[in-house]
Structure formats: structure tokens, C-alpha cells
Simulated assay, not measured.
Amino acid sequence: MIKWVRCHAVDVDSFDRGQRAWSALSGLPGFLGQFGGWSRRKPGVAHVFAWWNSQRDHQEFMAGAHDHLAANQVGTYDTIEARLWEHCLDIGAGLPTGFSSGSVVRLAHCRVKAGRQEHFVRAQANVWNPGMGAASGMLGGAFARRGQTEFLVLSLWNSVADHERYRTDRFPDLHHRARATEDLDDITGDQIELNPAWTVVG
């Protein structure tokens, strides 16, 4: 399972200090790793991604240690959204493998047209994943699903320049071959500058 948490911080410095306290996640049953950072496009917006071995492990964490850790950030943000996703596919080396070495994450939140889900998943496996995995500077990624029509694509890059080169050199051809326009109802995205102090190794 992948947990995606999106917050808008009203006190960036205090939020950052509170986020560092989540290092206590290390060693909890079923916890595989966590990383996050600040949006490069939306000031004050933080994204955090956590990997759990199973939904049950996550539920036990929520019923136990979560509230104590979350108390460190009370009052530092005004909005928060948390969503749990089922991991479907790795991209390249996958995640959380190696995410301590990357500097930027590309997030794509996709809503797929009814009846196009199977094609969208096949295109991800057969077109997008090989194309992204072969791109210079791409360190790993994950493709996840929530419900029937909602999908999350995360890719970890060595640098912003590496991702921009992929956008210029590879993305247009992959987008055409995947027939993405036919599949998508809506897509929103962000580019996240990772904060190494927020990384927690499972």
C-alpha cells in the first residue's frame, strides 16, 4: 500500500520540524519507507508518501502510534488530504528502493474514463514503464490504484534537468503510443523537491 498525504502548511518551519519527528516510523511492523518534500509549483504545499506492506499494517499503525507522531504538527497546516492506494506496478527499479538518492518526484494523479481502465493499465505496463525506466536520471517509480478509475503515477528523478529532458525527448512519443488522450478524464500533477530530512527508511 502507498499512502499519499498532501498538506498546505501555514507555518513552514514548524511543519518541517514536525515532519522530521516521523523518523520514529522506522522499525514499525509493516512499514517499508517514507519520503516527501515541498511542491515546486504551489508554495506551502507538502507531499509525503509512505509505503506499507499491507492495509492491515497501516490500520494497526493508525490505531496505535499515529496520533502521538501527528501531534508534532498540530497547528502547522490548514488543510490535509490523506489517501491510501494499492500498489500495482513498479517503474524501473521501483520504490521505495533508492529513494534516498533522488532529488525530485513527479506526481501524476489520473482519473480514467469508464471502460478504459484495462487499456490504461496495459499502456502503463507496456508503453510508459519501459519508456520511463530507460530514461536517463530516472531512479524508480510506482503505479498505484484507488477504486475503479483513480490512478497514481510516481517517478523519482536524479534532478529537475533529468525530468525536463525526459519531458522533451521521450514524453510526446510515449503519450501518443499509449493513446493517453483516449483514456483520461482528468490528470493533475506536481513536481516535488525532496527534503532528505523527511526520508525514513523502513
Rank of each mutant, 00 (worst) to 15 (best):
Phe143Val: 05
Asn129His: 15
Trp52His: 01
Leu194Phe: 03
Glu182Arg: 06
Glu150Trp: 04
Gln73Leu: 14
His175Leu: 15
Ala71Lys: 13
Gly33Asn: 06
Gln148Asn: 15
Leu69Pro: 00
Glu81Pro: 01
Gly92Ala: 09
Leu95His: 02
Leu184His: 07
His109Ser: 14
Asp67Thr: 14
Gln19Val: 10
Gly18Lys: 08
Gly140Asn: 06
Ala82Gly: 08
Leu89Asn: 03
Arg41Asn: 10
Pro43Val: 01
Ser103Thr: 12
Ile192Ala: 04
Asp13Ala: 15
Ile80Thr: 12
Val48Tyr: 00
Leu154Asn: 04
Gln117Trp: 02
Leu84Ile: 15
Pro29Trp: 01
Ala9Met: 03
Asn126Gln: 15
Gly33Asp: 10
His66Asn: 06
Ile91Gly: 14
Val104Leu: 06
Arg56Leu: 14
Arg146Val: 02
Leu139Thr: 05
Gly44Ile: 01
Gly64Met: 02
Trp51Ile: 09
Ala21Asp: 05
Ser23Pro: 08
Glu193Thr: 11
Ala134His: 03
Val121Gln: 07
Phe35Gly: 11
Val12His: 07
Gly98Thr: 03
Gly102His: 05
Arg165Pro: 00
Arg145Lys: 10
Gly37Ser: 01
Trp51Met: 12
Trp38Phe: 10
Trp85Lys: 03
His68Asp: 14
Asp67Gly: 03
Leu25Ser: 09
Ala82Val: 13
Asn158Tyr: 05
